[in-house]
Lab assay of single mutants.
Amino acid sequence: KKIKIDLKKGPEGLGFTVVTRDSSIHGPGPIFVKNILPKGAAIKDGRLQSGDRILEVNGRDVTGRTQEELVAMLRSTKQGETASLVIAR
């Protein structure tokens, strides 16, 4: 099931960490939400869960991207702006 979640970045950030699983010589594996932090946009919104697979960030497919690339995409969202995620659960 795909779910679109918009998180408005506040002073505590987006409020979640990510982890890559099953990376191989063929490229990075899928990226999942690792933890929801006690402060930040994710816990206020309440929909994002540990174990959700991140498919898109701000309309860009993240398949084949590294964890570092995904984190850079999320960090490029400025405070007060919205990060738009599509996740699979």
Score class of each variant (00 low, 15 high):
Leu55Ala: 05
Arg53Val: 14
Arg21Gly: 12
Gly40Phe: 02
Lys44Asp: 05
Gly59Asn: 11
Gly64Ala: 08
Gly80Tyr: 10
Pro38Val: 12
Ser23Phe: 10
Asn35Val: 09
Glu56Met: 11
Ile36Ser: 01
Pro30Asn: 13
Ala41Ser: 13
Asp61Pro: 10
Asp22Asn: 06
Gly27Lys: 08
Lys78Ile: 08
Glu68Gly: 08
Ala83Ser: 15
Asp22Gly: 04
Gly15Glu: 00
Gly27Asn: 09
Arg60Lys: 07
Asp6Asn: 15
Ile25Glu: 11
Lys4Glu: 07
Phe32His: 09
Phe32Cys: 11
Gly15Cys: 00
Glu68Asn: 06
Gly40Trp: 01
Leu37Tyr: 04
Gly40Asp: 02
Leu7Ser: 02
Asp45Leu: 02
Leu74Gln: 03
Glu56Asn: 10
Ile36Gln: 01
Thr77Pro: 08
Val62Cys: 14
Arg53Thr: 11
Thr66Arg: 04
Arg89Gln: 03
Lys2Asp: 14
Lys44Gly: 13
Leu7His: 00
Asp45Trp: 00
Leu85Gln: 02
Leu14Glu: 01
Thr20Ser: 08
Gly46Phe: 02
Lys39His: 10
Lys8Asn: 12
Gly10Tyr: 08
Gly13Phe: 01
Asp61Thr: 07
Val19Glu: 15
Ile3Val: 04
Lys39Cys: 11
Thr66Ala: 07
Arg60Ala: 10
Ile3Lys: 03
Ile31Lys: 08
Ala72Thr: 07
Lys4Cys: 12
Ser84Leu: 05
Leu48Arg: 00
Asp52Cys: 00
Ile43Arg: 04
Ile43Asn: 10
Gln49Phe: 10
Ile87Glu: 03
Ile43Glu: 07
Arg89Asp: 11
Leu85Val: 13
Asp52Ser: 01
Glu56Thr: 13
Leu55Pro: 00
Val57Trp: 13
Phe32Val: 09
Pro28Lys: 05
Asp52Lys: 00
Lys4Ile: 15
Ser50Trp: 04
Arg21Pro: 15
Ala83Gln: 12
Pro38Ile: 09
Asp52Thr: 00
Val33Thr: 02
Lys34Gly: 09
Ser50Ala: 13
Ser76Gly: 08
Val33Asp: 01
Leu70Asp: 02
Gly10His: 10
Asp61Ile: 13
Gly15Thr: 00
Asn58Met: 10
Gly10Val: 13
Val62Phe: 10
Gln67Asp: 13
Val19Ser: 12
Thr66Glu: 06
Leu48Val: 03
Val62Ser: 03
Ile36Met: 06
Thr66Gly: 09
Thr17Arg: 13
Ser23Trp: 06
Leu14Ile: 10
Asn58Ile: 01
Thr82Cys: 09
Gly51Gln: 06
Ser23Leu: 08
Gly15Phe: 00
Gly64Glu: 07
Lys9Arg: 15
Ile43Ser: 05
Val62Gln: 05
Gln79Trp: 06
Thr17Lys: 06
Pro28Arg: 08
Lys39Ser: 10
